[in-house]
């Protein structure tokens, strides 16, 4: 049942003349949590932002290579980034709920994507999936910014899930949260992978070990260009890495 949902082939990314990512090849498995780990500046976030074409927003970014999703190349001009982003959602490092009500935050994605059906039901469903319903069911009309940081991040997850994506990209989703809120998010990620494939960037190796099924280790070369060292079952990467650079990194010999 190890079906891949994303197949990345020879991915190269430049920002103007600076190459940020070199020759990445990886299969992202469906309904699994895949963690991207590595030191700062190794291109993990860049990689993540290629998958939903967010790099299009950076004027000088150039992306070469294939990212196949449902048999189609995300980078081809035939596909509309708007369409891709509604199928591949993203949760950001810093919780960024809109300064609107809790309800409107979750409903936003439904409305803009022309959802036909009961928005109320769908909002409730999404908030339940994000384990936030019990906290907010009596105050859906309250402003989202009154929630705590951890609740805000779960609201952002609910907002992403409402659009019913096949893949959810998470860029260090817990790095701005306290340890308790972090744990709640980690539990949530494990629960959610039964319905959505998750790719998560994290600086925290223990976190990667705790929540991911598969791990990809990235490094940065002397030209500050990122590349993938190896990728595999999380268990295997952490206990029996094939590459000695991976081993040095996870045992903390350099960071």
């Amino acid at each position: 049942m190890n079906e891949s949902i994303l197949n990345v082939k020879n991915l190269n990314v430049w920002y103007r003349d600076f190459q940020a990512l070199k020759d990445v090849n990886i299969d992202i498995l469906s309904n699994k949590v895949t963690a991207l780990i590595g030191p700062s500046g190794c291109g993990k976030s860049t990689m993540l932002r290629c998958i939903n074409r967010m790099n299009d927003l950076i004027p000088d970014a150039k992306v070469h290579g294939e990212i196949n999703f449902n048999g189609e190349n995300i980078n081809s001009n035939q596909l509309d980034p708007i369409d891709i982003r509604s199928k591949i959602g993203m949760v950001f490092q810093k919780p960024n709920p809109f300064p609107k009500s809790i309800f409107d935050n979750v409903a936003f994605g439904l409305r803009i994507n022309g959802f036909k059906g009961s928005i109320e039901d769908e909002v409730e469903k999404s908030l339940k999936k994000a384990a936030l319903w019990e906290d907010v069911k009596d105050r859906l009309k309250d402003g989202a910014l009154e929630l705590s940081g951890g609740q805000q991040q779960r609201l952002c997850i609910a907002r992403t899930l409402a659009v019913n994506p096949q893949v959810m990209l998470m860029d260090e989703p817990a790095s701005a949260l306290d340890p308790i809120a972090t744990l709640a998010i980690e539990e949530l990620i494990r629960d959610l992978c039964s319905e959505v494939s998750i790719v998560i960037v994290t600086h925290n190796m223990q976190q990667a070990a705790r929540i991911s099924h598969r791990t990809a280790f990235f490094m940065v070369d002397q030209d500050r260009c990122g590349y993938m060292v190896e990728e595999g079952e999380t268990n295997q990467i952490f206990t029996d890495p094939q590459d000695e650079r991976t081993e040095s990194y996870i045992t903390g010999r350099f960071s």
Binding site: N52, M54, L57, G89, K94, F98, R111, I112, C156, T160
Partner: peptide, 26 residues
Amino acid sequence: PNSYREAALALGATKWQMVKGVVLPI
């Protein structure tokens, strides 16, 4: 803040939907 724009676009909003639904109200 740009983070609001990114959040809207990441949900599949068009540029105009992002401007009308998020940027202008703020």
